[in-house]
Nucleic acid binder design. Structure first.
Lengths: 97, 97
DNA sequence: TTGACAGGCAAGTAATTGCTTGCATATTGT
DNA sequence: ACAATATGCAAGCAATTACTTGCCTGTCAA
């Protein structure tokens, strides 16, 4: 568990999925499939999308909630925050230690 | 050219290289080799490091300058900036157009 | 010029990854 | 109960990736 966030972001299809979820949160697998094909011009099967979602979920970039036979996917931007700051130099503008 | 920044960051060894360059800029290939082995416990050949550096350079995360037989590697954080902000929701706090 | 040092190029290999197809499970409406 | 819908699981395949070994080029000091 707690998969690699960087590896999750490495695939362009997964990034498209995140793009979709920014626009509209709480989409189901089928909704995402449809919109990835029509809007982003991607061509992959439902299982393809499902596996990508599993990777994103493992990296905690996507959270899911179940309701009956539906599974809704929500974006979670929390793991993204320490991402860009990791390689920022310690400029120590205030002058800590 | 202009390789994929996300794919460049996907590999943990490459992330270690960036970690090293944050601490000390302008290292040569041999310096990086030595420190990756000793400090980060990695075990790879010089060519392994060289190929990783090529990927980082292609993603413009690393810039190089030559001086005689030495090649110095510098970190370039510029491509990292739009990285985390890509999936931030348009909160429009001030309400810009 | 010779030898040592720093780096580059290329082919080969093993592991990983993205994707598909086929079947199984669970929920809902009639 | 039955069929349709929404999703899950797993084996198999092709492409990519990370890594190694071996050799070549360029630079510097003696």
């Amino acid at each position: 568990m707690a998969g690699d966030v960087f590896k999750a972001l490495a695939d362009s299809t997964r990034r498209c999925i995140l793009d979709e979820l920014v626009e509209r949160d709480g989409q189901t697998l089928f909704e995402l499939c449809t919109r990835l094909v029509s809007k982003h011009g991607l061509d992959l099967s439902r299982q393809g999308v499902s596996q990508h979602l599993a990777v994103l979920e493992d990296a905690e970039l996507v959270r899911t909630r179940r309701s009956g036979r539906y599974k809704f996917h929500d974006l979670n931007t929390e793991p993204l925050e320490p991402l860009a700051t990791r390689w920022l130099r310690p400029e120590t503008p205030g002058g800590a230690s």
